[in-house]
Amino acid sequence: MMEKEWNDEEWQELANQLSEPQGDAGIKTGEMMASSNENMIFRTIDLLGLSVDEEVLEIGHGSASHLNALMRKASGLEYTGIDISLTMIEEAKRINSALIDAGSVSFHLSDGLHIDFSDNQFDKIFTVNTLYFWKDPKAYAQEIYRVLKPGGSFCLAIATKDFMEKLPFTKWVFQLYNRSMAEELLSSAGFSIQSVAEEKDIAISRTGEQVERDIIIVTAGK
């Protein structure tokens, strides 16, 4: 049986759901993102180098099905997740109810422009595949810098501009970045670039096939 051809309207709706999952379709999109991004998320978490009793912020956590694995990286971790999608926050709370009950995990709705936490609050911050959707990239990078503790690290993970341009839905909503653009954005916000990992990642496509993609994980410090 041949797969149905998607039209531009359907691809644009997928782009909108990827940027801010909503409703039943958003839950399905969240499941797809969790599967597609799983390897990339775990690689980013590894590069964070989590240590005992650190406070961790994740921006754009989606369903946060990776959270049990993250919390096992070190003892005493405190995790905060923020997302612009109420649908994803509700899913994350449902999936991670035991961790929430234990008092070590919380999720918060964000406007995508401000991070409603104190200056110098988090030891480690990370985000995977959200940069494309930042409403004011430089101002938001400055917000991340503000809430990061001096000596802390921020890991930013994206798929490359060259790879993303080949996808049929990225001409809507998405702002694509190559390595130098990502580094320049973070440097302009005050970060010092500590390392950049350029790697091949295996993702799962919308049709369930394995796809090799080029990814960048920038580790930046304050």
Rank of each mutant, 00 (worst) to 15 (best):
residue 202 I to D: 08
residue 1 M to C: 05
residue 3 E to C: 02
residue 117 F to R: 06
residue 53 D to H: 13
residue 113 L to C: 06
residue 158 I to N: 10
residue 102 A to S: 14
residue 105 V to M: 01
residue 40 M to P: 00
residue 55 E to S: 15
residue 181 M to R: 11
residue 221 G to K: 13
residue 208 G to W: 11
residue 103 G to R: 07
residue 128 V to S: 05
residue 138 K to V: 13
residue 108 H to D: 02
residue 199 E to W: 04
residue 24 D to T: 11
residue 27 I to G: 02
residue 134 W to N: 03
residue 202 I to T: 15
residue 123 D to R: 02
residue 39 N to H: 07
residue 58 E to R: 00
residue 119 D to H: 09
residue 135 K to A: 11
residue 76 G to L: 09
residue 147 V to R: 09
residue 13 E to T: 12
residue 197 A to T: 14
residue 34 A to I: 05
residue 208 G to L: 12
residue 20 E to G: 02
residue 167 L to D: 01
residue 214 D to M: 08
residue 151 G to Q: 05
residue 205 S to I: 10
residue 138 K to S: 12
residue 191 F to Y: 07
residue 39 N to V: 04
residue 200 K to I: 11
residue 25 A to R: 12
residue 52 V to Q: 14
residue 207 T to M: 06
residue 10 E to R: 05
residue 146 R to H: 10
residue 117 F to N: 04
residue 23 G to N: 11
residue 105 V to L: 04
residue 102 A to R: 12
residue 218 V to R: 06
residue 93 K to Y: 02
residue 67 L to Q: 05
residue 1 M to W: 00
residue 29 T to S: 10
residue 168 P to W: 10
residue 26 G to H: 07
residue 185 L to I: 07
residue 199 E to T: 15
residue 143 E to H: 08
residue 48 L to W: 05
residue 136 D to N: 13
residue 204 I to H: 03
residue 77 L to Y: 05
residue 168 P to F: 08
residue 30 G to K: 06
residue 137 P to G: 07
residue 13 E to H: 12
residue 205 S to C: 04
residue 78 E to D: 04
residue 79 Y to S: 03
residue 63 S to L: 07
residue 207 T to L: 09
residue 48 L to D: 07
residue 142 Q to N: 10
residue 164 M to P: 00
residue 33 M to A: 08
residue 163 F to E: 12
residue 48 L to Q: 11
residue 101 D to W: 00
residue 64 A to C: 05
residue 68 N to V: 11
residue 218 V to M: 09
residue 84 I to Y: 01
residue 24 D to V: 09
residue 42 F to L: 15
residue 94 R to G: 02
residue 81 G to E: 03
residue 214 D to Q: 14
residue 105 V to W: 00
residue 18 L to Q: 11
residue 51 S to G: 08
residue 6 W to L: 15
residue 160 T to H: 04
residue 220 A to C: 12
residue 208 G to M: 13
residue 183 E to L: 10
residue 133 F to A: 09
residue 50 L to Y: 06
residue 76 G to F: 08
residue 20 E to W: 00
residue 5 E to A: 14
residue 172 W to P: 00
residue 49 G to I: 11
residue 165 E to S: 14
residue 74 A to R: 05
residue 180 S to G: 01
residue 150 P to H: 11
residue 50 L to Q: 07
residue 149 K to C: 04
residue 36 S to R: 13
residue 193 I to K: 03
residue 75 S to I: 05
residue 154 F to Y: 15
residue 96 N to G: 07
residue 44 T to W: 05
residue 127 T to E: 02
residue 202 I to M: 09
